[in-house]
């Protein structure tokens, strides 16, 4: 999928809620770990992104999702056809 500015903002909001920090604490390259996030929060972020954006993210890519920029890169590499394969309705 291709992300527009509003979608990136939505991703930032979603991550801020999950790791319980203010949105402005999350810069493009701020490491979530430096904000107190652990690997369980990473799974939570992944599950919530999949639900909100109707994509399927391969678990192997979790290691890349340590910053907002990393998350956006992974999201852009998650094609919508995977959505059908895992039985989730695309939004």
């Amino acid at each position: 999928m291709t992300l527009d500015e509003a979608q990136v903002a939505k991703i930032r909001t979603l991550i801020a809620e999950i790791i319980e920090v203010e949105e402005d604490q999350i810069g493009p390259q701020t490491r979530f770990e430096d904000l107190g996030a652990d690997s369980l929060r990473a799974i939570e972020i992944m599950a919530q992104l999949e639900k909100t954006f109707g994509v399927s993210i391969h678990q192997d890519r979790l290691a890349e999702m340590t910053t907002l920029q990393g998350v956006c890169t992974v999201m852009q590499g998650s094609p919508p056809e995977e959505v059908k394969a895992c039985g989730v309705t695309a939004s």
Binding site: E44, A47, K51, S56
Partner: peptide, 12 residues
Amino acid sequence: HLDPSSAQPHLD
């Protein structure tokens, strides 16, 4: 539980 969407068919 906490699962990614790949678990959805099993959960359904």
